[in-house]
């Protein structure tokens, strides 16, 4: 069978159609199967070189992409901005074109500026995968979240998902909203007024400021970290107050009259947005998300690499 994505780059969920997301999730199923075999490697991308350009810190996403690339037999080069010529004043296009001149076929990029991946896709000849651009989008995270919900609950359609925390600074939130809505889920955001963008309800999401009400409504709670590194001003009085109003703990979960699924894109600040006993409980699918991340990224790379522009 042959089928292909409607896009040449993965810049965000916004540019995708429903059939693209379904194709990625279905392909990820096969890769998850491959990852559970004694030999976890397939030769599909053996003729490709992929550059991972990380202009911003990352552990999980970079490792996950690197593993996905290696499981597909691609050659991998890594680049982090702290140890590169970017600090000497080179522009983004120059940096990337220099790397492409060394015959690199695909670029996976994380960058602090929103739209960096889209910008790059217009100026260099290479397939681009956005691994997070500032506070804009983080498409592979949204895809792996959808994959994990589908795996846990059977499907995403009709499910109620609440995204809790720092929505304003979160690329995960925006990509998740697009992806979940595309797949037919209902989405709510919950957090302090200052951390929820003013016009977010225009996207068709519900807004709630009461954590208990939000949890009572949902099937799945996706808990986000407070991104202190992106906050230039004080958005709430103290972390302790945030925890008291928006932190999820065991007692709160036990007081609900139903079981909900807890997700977190990581890194977790234990004791702030989520307590340790919740993060490690059977409600939590946090480590499944990490495991599924490799399969989903393999699917994205495989489908983009297999698309020829001849």
């Amino acid at each position: 069978m042959k089928s292909s994505l409607s896009v040449n780059h993965l810049l965000g969920i916004k540019g995708l159609q429903l059939r693209d997301v379904e194709l990625i999730l279905a392909t990820a199923d096969t890769f998850k199967d491959v990852l559970n075999r004694p030999i976890k490697k397939v030769p599909s991308l053996r003729d490709l070189t992929i550059a991972n350009l990380f202009f911003e810190n990352s552990t999980r996403t970079r490792l996950s992409f690197e593993l996905a690339e290696k499981r597909l037999s691609a050659d991998v080069v890594n680049f982090t901005s702290s140890s590169s010529s970017v600090t000497k004043g080179e522009t983004l296009i120059d940096t990337v074109n220099n790397i492409l001149a060394m015959k690199v076929d695909m670029v996976v990029m994380r960058h602090p500026s929103p739209g960096a991946a889209a910008f790059l896709s217009q100026h260099v000849r290479s397939r681009i995968v956005n691994a997070g651009d500032g506070t804009h989008e983080h498409p592979t995270q949204a895809l792996l979240d959808a994959f994990s919900i589908r795996e846990k609950l059977g499907s995403v359609k009709g499910k109620k998902v609440v995204i809790i925390g720092d929505i304003l600074h979160s690329r995960v939130a925006l990509s998740n909203i697009f992806c979940l809505q595309l797949l037919g889920a209902e989405v709510m955001v919950c957090g302090p007024t200052t951390l929820i963008p003013k016009y977010i309800s225009e996207l068709g999401v519900r807004v709630e400021h009461n954590l208990r009400k939000a949890l009572q409504w949902c099937d799945v709670a996706n808990v986000l970290r407070i991104q202190l590194e992106r906050q230039d001003i004080k958005y709430f009085p103290s972390l302790r107050e945030y925890t008291m109003l928006f932190g999820i703990n065991k007692a709160l979960l036990d007081s609900l009259d139903k079981q909900i699924v807890i997700m977190h894109p990581g890194p977790i600040n234990r004791g702030v947005e989520i307590t340790s006993d919740v993060a490690d409980s059977e409600h939590s699918i946090i480590l499944d998300q990490v495991e599924n991340g490799v399969a989903v990224r393999m699917a994205v790379l495989y489908l983009l690499a297999g698309k020829n522009e001849k």
């Binding site: 096969t30 397939v42 030769p43 495989y302 489908l303 690499a305």
Partner: peptide
Amino acid sequence: LDFTFFRDDFRSHDSPLIPSAT
């Protein structure tokens, strides 16, 4: 058995080959 990932013509088609289940 699905062998899609092991084919030698993966990138010579216009669109990627979609695997079946093993």
